[in-house]
Design a protein around this nucleic acid. Structure first.
Length: 271
DNA sequence: ATAATCACCTGCTCGC
DNA sequence: TGCGAGCAGGTGATTA
């Protein structure tokens, strides 16, 4: 469940159970994630107190005294706070067990996620070092999109999903933001005006912020278990709605593929 | 440097 | 009912 709003929702859900808590042990049942979980990770974390739980892009960062645990949920990962003695199921790869009796359980059927260790500052890690600005921060705006896009021929949707341009815009919200901004996803990035990029940046921020707001509902799923997917589905205007009527003009939405990703737009509302 | 493709995995849905 | 094909919220690596 990993677009940025869900990662942020997960962060908010788990942080109160983790911050200030001491790690009793770390159980690794399967270290074969996108990158192997370091063998030494459990020993590095054991006995330490988690200072903070923060987020950079779609990475979650657990700040420990002498380093940071970096987690990513990939396509199918999820995190839950559980009672430490709850039996593990097939894809429950990691438990971070706390002395409080709770545990953070990392589950990921497809194993595209990761759990890594960075002994220095988290932003020094190879995966974090070259990321673009946070979409909801002040460093991201239409001017940046405009400047970064000059001479670029890739479709604008691919462009805004490029982590070096801006982080955290996944397939769902790329589709949604482009619809909200009235821009065709297959338009060349370099051929879009400054004014339209200002609109697009605003819509990216708005769509993500709204989804995070609604993510509050999901918080239960992450904390309590018993997760039900698709909590904000009713808000989606185009994603997953190919061939269905445009919510604005009622014409049939078009579904194409850009960069191997499903792309949906309205041929009359977006240009 | 940029763009397109591949790759990593499991699970689910669809059409035959 | 069974089975292969295709697709799924991500993104680094590889290839032109």
């Amino acid at each position: 469940m990993p677009e940025l709003p869900e990662v942020e929702t997960a962060r908010r859900g788990i942080a109160p159970y983790l911050e200030g808590q001491r790690i009793k042990k770390v159980i690794v049942r399967d270290s074969r994630l996108r990158w192997p979980i370091p063998d030494e990770l459990p020993a590095l974390m054991k006995g330490k107190v988690i200072a903070t739980v923060t987020r950079r892009a779609k990475y979650l960062l657990l700040a420990l005294p002498k380093g940071t645990t970096i987690m990513h949920l990939g396509m199918s990962g999820s995190l839950r706070i559980i009672d430490a003695k709850e039996p593990a199921l097939l894809h429950d790869h990691v438990d971070i067990v706390l002395t409080s009796g709770k545990a953070l359980r990392f589950t990921d059927p497809r194993r595209f996620g990761c759990v890594l260790w960075e002994p220095g500052k988290p932003e020094q890690h190879k995966l974090l070092a070259h990321l673009g600005p946070e979409p909801l921060g002040n460093d991201f705006d239409g001017e940046r999109l405009f400047q970064c896009s000059r001479k670029r021929k890739a479709p604008v949707k691919t462009f805004i999903m490029d982590n070096k341009v801006v982080v955290g815009v996944g397939n769902i919200y790329a589709n949604e933001a482009l619809f909200a901004a009235g821009i065709r996803p297959d338009r060349q990035a370099g051929a879009i005006s400054r004014q339209r990029y200002q609109l697009l940046a605003d819509q990216i921020k708005q769509v993500l912020a709204k989804a995070i707001e609604q993510g509050g509902t999901t918080l239960k799923d992450f904390v309590g278990g018993d997760g039900k997917p698709g909590y904000f589905k009713q808000e989606l205007k185009v994603y997953g709605r190919g061939d269905q009527p445009c919510t604005s003009c009622k014409k049939s939405l078009i579904e194409i593929r850009l960069g191997q990703r499903s792309t949906v737009f309205c041929n009359s509302c977006q240009s």
